[in-house]
Design a protein around this nucleic acid. Structure first.
Lengths: 168, 168
DNA sequence: ACAAAATATATGACTTGTCACGTATTTTGT
DNA sequence: ACAAAATACGTGACAAGTCATATATTTTGT
């Protein structure tokens, strides 16, 4: 006697497969995996957080800059930095000083200790990027980023424009 | 008399441009934008959270299933669902019952109220997908997802494999 | 038949990110 | 020159994720 199943495994698998083609469902998972991988690699490379790593890297590459500059480069909200930086100062990685040119701004600069922390993490993170380039050709990466660009543009479109769309 | 600038704007812009080609830096921002757009649209479509929307949608498409099934479809950690579901039950969107086939499992099922909430949000969310298809061709979306697949695979590679990479 | 291993769920602790809003400072328009 | 607008930063409140670990139940191997 066939009892009615509580769940339909075939439907479930079909749904998972189908959702695999939905960019909006894939993005969270891919991003989460990227974050997790980054965190693991940073753990190996000295224990920095992702925000700390990005910030040290940016400061290392361009020199002192404001919180807003960092947020722009990292394409994130300034509040994320605003919260992370005092901690980084406490750890001795950066200094923060009021700008003389514009009293609203805070100039963030790398210290020697920050440079050291960067140097410990950098080789691991460079290896990650090298590993990525073994899996994707230069050409493919450009194309991939092209898609990300276009998706980004779509995601920042005014909401009304999306709501005006005719359903197919 | 030329004072030394506190920050080098050209370097900052160059850095931002350069990081624009780094998949690992783009991903967080693109994902965040996707989340924000989703939240806005859901706000318009009745005020569901993203997790709630995904869950109602999945239940609507496949019928009752376990927490693990939902997590697998959504490619997320089960704990996310484990935390969200009691709230959804409280709101009357779903029922949760212990499975008779396997006492460890919880069977989650949609209620009429859940179906109603889904129906309120669905048109807006469908319009979003339609709008995306106006910006990307079917072919391009397949290619885009292909890149996401490959990146996903890379991100889930054992860490040692990445560390063994020869730097270029 | 039962001990050991595996699986499903719950929960605490944490990170990354957003938005909204308040305050201080600078810029702009008249 | 000064009021109004814009900008930079800080902070509270929240969402969406992760991992680790604990408990209950089921499955497996002998």
């Amino acid at each position: 006697m066939d009892t009615v199943k509580e769940r339909d495994i075939e439907s479930i698998e079909a749904r998972r497969t189908r959702e695999g083609y939905n960019v909006f469902s894939r993005l969270p998972a891919v991003y989460a995996a990227s974050r997790t991988q980054g965190q693991h690699l940073l753990q190996i490379g000295g224990g920095l957080s992702i925000v700390e790593w990005r910030t040290l890297w940016d400061l290392r590459e361009v020199g002192p800059m404001t919180i807003r500059d960092l947020a722009l480069i990292q394409r994130s909200d300034h509040s994320l930095l605003s919260r992370a930086l005092p901690d980084m100062r406490r750890k001795g990685y950066v200094t923060m000083s009021r700008s003389k040119e514009d009293g609203r701004q805070t100039i963030v600069a790398l210290t020697q200790k920050g440079r050291d922390a960067y140097d410990r993490a950098a080789p691991t993170m460079a290896r990650r990027r090298a590993a990525l380039r073994e899996v994707f050709t230069e050409q493919e990466l450009v194309e991939f980023v092209g898609y990300l660009d276009r998706l980004d543009a779509f995601l920042r479109m005014p909401i009304e424009e999306i709501l005006e769309t005719n359903d197919a």
